[in-house]
C-alpha cells in the first residue's frame, strides 16, 4: 500500500492520460456510426455489407491492429493518435450495428404517422427516429464506453501511456499493488464514464424516465417529445 500513497500523483497522471485516450474514441465512434448505421438500416444490400465489414473489424485483435495501423494511416506506432484510431474503429464496429438495430426498433406505425403528419425524411430521422432509437443507442454507447476504457490499457505494451502502464511497470518491477491499483482505477473510470452516459441519456431523453417500466405506447412516447412541438 505504501506504493500507492507515494505514487498518487502518478496514478492521477495516468488516469488523465487514460481519459484523453478513451473519450475521443467514444465520441467519434458514435458520430461516425450514425450515418453508417442509418445506411445499414435504410437499404437491404448495404445492411449486409456494412454489418459484415463491421463484424470483421470487430474480430481483428487489437495488438496486431496497433501494429498495422501506422502502415495504413501513417500514425506513429507509440502515439496516442494511433491508439485512438484503433479504439475508434472498434467502437465504430460495435456502434454501427447498434444504430442499425436501434433505428430498426422504431415502431413502423410511428414512422408512418410521422410521415403522414408531414415530416420530411431528414427531419423525421432527427426528430422522430433517432430519439425513439435513443434507449438502444444509449445501451450501445454504454458498452462502447466500458470496453474502450478497458481496451485502452493495451497500448501500454507498446509504450502508449495510460493506466495500462501501471500493469506493465508493476509486472516488470514485481509490484502487485501497482497492478491492482491500475485494475481498480480502470474499472472505476469505466464505471464513472458509464454513469455519465446514463445521466446524459436521462437529460436528453426525459420521456424514458417515467415510461421505463411500463411498456411505452408509441403515441405516449411521441406525444411529450419536445421536438415535435416546434415542427407541428
Amino acid at each position: 500500500m505504501t506504493w500507492l500513497w507515494s505514487n498518487l500523483d502518478l496514478v492521477w497522471l495516468r488516469t488523465l492520460d487514460h481519459i484523453v485516450l478513451s473519450l475521443p474514441p467514444i465520441l467519434l465512434s458514435f458520430v461516425f456510426a450514425l450515418p453508417l448505421g442509418w445506411l445499414a438500416n435504410r437499404y437491404r444490400p448495404t445492411r449486409g455489407a456494412i454489418l459484415s465489414i463491421a463484424g470483421l473489424f470487430y474480430a481483428i485483435p487489437s495488438l496486431p491492429l496497433l501494429f498495422i495501423l501506422p502502415v495504413i494511416i501513417g500514425t506513429s506506432l507509440r502515439s496516442p493518435a494511433n491508439l485512438i484510431a484503433a479504439l475508434t474503429l472498434y467502437g465504430l464496429a460495435l456502434m454501427v450495428r447498434v444504430v442499425a438495430d436501434g433505428l430498426a426498433s422504431v415502431d413502423p406505425d410511428v414512422r408512418q404517422s410521422a410521415t403522414a403528419v408531414g415530416f420530411s425524411a431528414w427531419s423525421r430521422f432527427w426528430l422522430v427516429e433517432l430519439p425513439l432509437a435513443g434507449p438502444v443507442l444509449l445501451a450501445g454507447v454504454r458498452v462502447v464506453a466500458v470496453s474502450t476504457v478497458s481496451l485502452a490499457t493495451v497500448g501500454a505494451v507498446i509504450g502508449a501511456k495510460s493506466l495500462g502502464s501501471l500493469f506493465t511497470d508493476g509486472f516488470q518491477r514485481g509490484i502487485q499493488v501497482e497492478i491492482i491499483t491500475g485494475i481498480v482505477a480502470t474499472v472505476l473510470l469505466a464505471l464513472v464514464l458509464d454513469g455519465a452516459v446514463v445521466l446524459l441519456g436521462r437529460v436528453l431523453m426525459p420521456w424514458t424516465r417515467r415510461t421505463r417500466r411500463i411498456r411505452p405506447a408509441p403515441a405516449a412516447v411521441l406525444g411529450p417529445m419536445p421536438v415535435v412541438r416546434s415542427v407541428a
Partner: peptide, 19 residues
Amino acid sequence: SGGLRAIPTLGLLTLVALW
C-alpha cells in the same frame, strides 16, 4: 459478466503472472 467486461485483460494477465 458486466463487471468482467470492465476489467482490463492486460491487468488480469500481469497480476496472475505475478502470482
